[in-house]
Simulated scan of single mutants.
Amino acid sequence: MLAALCYPFRRRIYAATGLPRYSTTTTVEPRPPVPFTCKTGLNPFAAPATGLTGPGAVATARILALTALEEHSDSSLVVIPRPDATALFGLGEDELLDDDTAALFIPGNLDAALAYLETELAIRQNTGATDGRRLLLVADCESESQRIQSLFDRHPGGACAILLGPWTGEQAATDDEGLVDAPPALASALPDRLPTMSRIEARDRLLSALARQIQDQKPAPRRRPAPRHSEL
């Protein structure tokens, strides 16, 4: 019942609208990159809102979004506004317009994404539904910090967010090597160091994850019954 209410609304919303900083006088051995594997041990849902800042913020948002899509696709829905899908993964305006996966929704902009979340959470509250997918917003919060915080206040535990931009709540700073400096409220949700990832690699992993999910969602082909031999 919940899916019947949710996904038609999603389709209506859909139509809406650097170099390392090393001293020149000191030799510094660069840290080897942390590999990003399918099982990262990260939990994108560990905090209601994870604000990200610093030179590694975008890469961190990519990794957290991919973790949700690769490790939690059966139980979560990642909502990424189109401008953020472009910034994080290099997706064009016409890519994934007909996406049929249950784990990813790309509305036209942040306003449309928030309108979807507000409506979906209100439906769940009004119907008492408790078996819906976990909701994760990954976006630049732009000038909507108050609106996003109000959404969390009205529906505690209803959704989580990975937020870039001028988020007014707690923020974790990541540098271009993936080192994390987080306040106590976020420290337990993030490791001391995160893997880094380019937009090209992130795009490839995103498309691969979606292709696997689409394949998994296809019903198994029916086997044609064997012809009966006429009895003699």
Rank of each mutant, 00 (worst) to 15 (best):
residue 78 V to G: 10
residue 79 V to R: 02
residue 80 I to H: 04
residue 80 I to F: 13
residue 81 P to G: 13
residue 82 R to E: 05
residue 82 R to L: 07
residue 82 R to S: 01
residue 82 R to C: 01
residue 82 R to T: 08
residue 83 P to H: 05
residue 83 P to Y: 01
residue 83 P to W: 02
residue 83 P to A: 00
residue 84 D to I: 13
residue 85 A to N: 11
residue 85 A to K: 01
residue 86 T to M: 09
residue 86 T to V: 05
residue 86 T to S: 11
residue 87 A to H: 07
residue 87 A to F: 01
residue 88 L to S: 09
residue 88 L to T: 07
residue 88 L to M: 05
residue 89 F to Q: 04
residue 89 F to L: 11
residue 91 L to Q: 06
residue 91 L to C: 14
residue 92 G to T: 15
residue 92 G to D: 14
residue 92 G to P: 00
residue 92 G to Q: 12
residue 93 E to D: 12
residue 93 E to G: 02
residue 93 E to K: 03
residue 93 E to Y: 03
residue 93 E to L: 13
residue 94 D to C: 12
residue 94 D to Y: 11
residue 94 D to Q: 15
residue 95 E to P: 10
residue 95 E to K: 08
residue 95 E to S: 15
residue 95 E to Y: 13
residue 95 E to H: 12
residue 95 E to I: 12
residue 96 L to M: 14
residue 96 L to P: 11
residue 97 L to T: 09
residue 97 L to A: 10
residue 97 L to F: 01
residue 97 L to W: 05
residue 97 L to C: 09
residue 98 D to I: 10
residue 100 D to P: 08
residue 100 D to T: 15
residue 100 D to S: 14
residue 101 T to W: 14
residue 101 T to I: 11
residue 101 T to P: 15
residue 101 T to S: 12
residue 102 A to C: 01
residue 102 A to H: 12
residue 102 A to R: 14
residue 102 A to Q: 15
residue 102 A to V: 15
residue 103 A to V: 08
residue 103 A to I: 07
residue 103 A to T: 10
residue 103 A to H: 02
residue 103 A to G: 06
residue 104 L to P: 11
residue 104 L to I: 11
residue 104 L to N: 01
residue 105 F to L: 12
residue 105 F to H: 09
residue 107 P to R: 00
residue 107 P to K: 06
residue 107 P to C: 08
residue 107 P to D: 13
residue 108 G to K: 04
residue 108 G to A: 05
residue 109 N to P: 04
residue 109 N to V: 05
residue 109 N to Q: 09
residue 109 N to E: 02
residue 109 N to H: 06
residue 109 N to M: 05
residue 109 N to K: 12
residue 110 L to R: 02
residue 110 L to S: 12
residue 111 D to Q: 10
residue 111 D to F: 13
residue 111 D to T: 11
residue 111 D to H: 07
residue 112 A to H: 07
residue 112 A to F: 08
residue 113 A to D: 00
residue 115 A to D: 14
residue 115 A to M: 03
residue 115 A to P: 00
residue 116 Y to E: 15
residue 116 Y to C: 04
residue 117 L to F: 10
